[in-house]
Write a protein that binds this DNA or RNA. Structure first.
Lengths: 133, 133
DNA sequence: CTAGTTGCAAAGAGTTTGCATGGCG
DNA sequence: CGCCATGCAAACTCTTTGCAACTAG
């Protein structure tokens, strides 16, 4: 049995509303307003939602924190994500391209990629043009 | 001026000898033998080597630790790495395949991938067959 | 009512830092 | 000999856990 507490709802809704960004526990706590949720409730709910497969847990290079992202397993399982190291946004790779990458890698190395859980790191178009200005 | 202390040499050599695996600070400390290096020297040297571009710093999903890997920028810059989530080994993707991935993603999304720093996560052939047994 | 959740505070785990000592060049 | 690096211990940051109070169903 799982109760729908105010805190859990707030947390999940916040992540759902920003499906293309990763947040660490601190950012989530701040976004929900500090007086509405305690840090331990943040962590406990994140752990619970993760084991339910509703959110994904990742790490960002060079950071000590763990990041979380809403993960719609239905719509995410068929593509690869592109993660922008500068702005933290997540982009979705076109399906045809993702398929060809998966096929190539599996044939070449026997390496099995789970598309829904694969992320390629780089710099997005916006951050690129911004830095050129 | 940088001194070549015994500790720094041991650390770098250890990573050089295992170019295809990631290690956390604890593993490195243990591998070098605890009485030859202190934990703080491990961290300080890792930070120094990283800023020199001699090693790479990464994170492993679901782990609080930070991982380090020897990074030969000369030989690594032209390919994408495949990281096995189960055994922690790193595989090198064939250049032709890496090129086509980079080209596809850049044309589709304007997303810029730095090949030397890109890692795709999955499960390698060995771990796959092992789990089937 | 009662089992699941919360908030708080304390404990853990990994990493960083200050300082006196030691060693490379 | 002078500066850099080391070892130790303490400080920090992020996360987890124990416990009593609270609340959804």
């Amino acid at each position: 049995m799982v109760y729908n507490t105010e805190q859990r709802t707030l947390l999940l809704n916040f992540l759902k509303e920003h499906p293309d960004t990763m947040f660490c526990a601190k950012q989530i706590e701040a976004a929900i307003q500090k007086d509405c949720i305690s840090r331990s409730a943040v962590y406990r709910n994140l752990a619970e939602l993760e084991s339910d497969g509703k959110i994904k847990r990742c790490s960002k290079a060079g950071s000590r924190e763990v990041y979380y992202q809403y993960f719609d397993s239905q719509s995410c399982k068929n593509h690869i994500h592109l993660f922008c190291k500068q702005c933290g946004k997540i982009f979705h790779m076109e399906n045809k391209i993702a398929d060809s990458i998966v096929n190539n890698v599996e044939q070449d190395n026997g390496f099995e990629i789970n598309k829904g859980e694969t992320t390629i790191y780089g710099v997005c178009r916006d951050c690129n043009t911004r830095s050129i200005k």
